[in-house]
Simulated assay, not measured.
Amino acid sequence: MEAPVVISAPNPRSLDLIFTPSDRATLHRGYQVVEADPLGITGLDGAVLAKARYIVGQPPLSSETLARMTALRAIFNVETNLINNMPYEVLFERGIHVLTTGAVFAEPVAELGLALALDLARDIVDADLAFRKGEELWGGDGNRRARLMSGSEIGIIGFGDLGKALNRLLSGFRARIKAHDPWLPPSMLAEHGVIPASLEEVLSGSDFVFVVAAATNENEGLLGAEAFATMRKGAIFVLLSRAGVVDFSALMDAVRSGHILAASDVFPEEPLASDHPVRTLPGFLRSAHRAGALDVAFKRMGDMVLEDMALMDRGLPPMRCKRAERETVSRMRSKPVDRN
Rank of each mutant, 00 (worst) to 15 (best):
L240N: 03
L240T: 07
R242D: 00
A243V: 01
V246N: 04
V246H: 08
V246G: 03
V246M: 07
S249T: 13
A250I: 04
A250H: 06
V255E: 00
V255M: 02
V255A: 07
R256Y: 06
G258S: 13
G258L: 07
I260E: 00
I260A: 00
L261S: 09
A262Q: 03
A263W: 09
A263P: 02
S264D: 05
D265L: 06
D265C: 12
V266P: 02
F267Q: 14
F267K: 07
F267G: 03
P268E: 15
E270R: 12
L272R: 08
L272G: 01
V278N: 01
R279W: 12
T280G: 06
L281M: 14
G283T: 09
R286T: 09
S287N: 09
A288C: 13
H289P: 04
H289W: 07
G292A: 12
L294R: 12
D295K: 09
V296W: 06
V296P: 00
A297Q: 15
K299V: 05
K299Y: 03
K299R: 15
K299P: 07
K299H: 08
R300D: 09
G302D: 06
D303M: 10
D308S: 11
M309S: 12
A310K: 11
D313I: 11
D313C: 12
D313G: 04
D313E: 15
R314F: 02
L316K: 15
M319F: 10
R320P: 00
C321M: 13
R326D: 05
T328N: 11
T328Q: 11
S330V: 11
R331V: 03
S334L: 14
P336Y: 06
V337I: 10
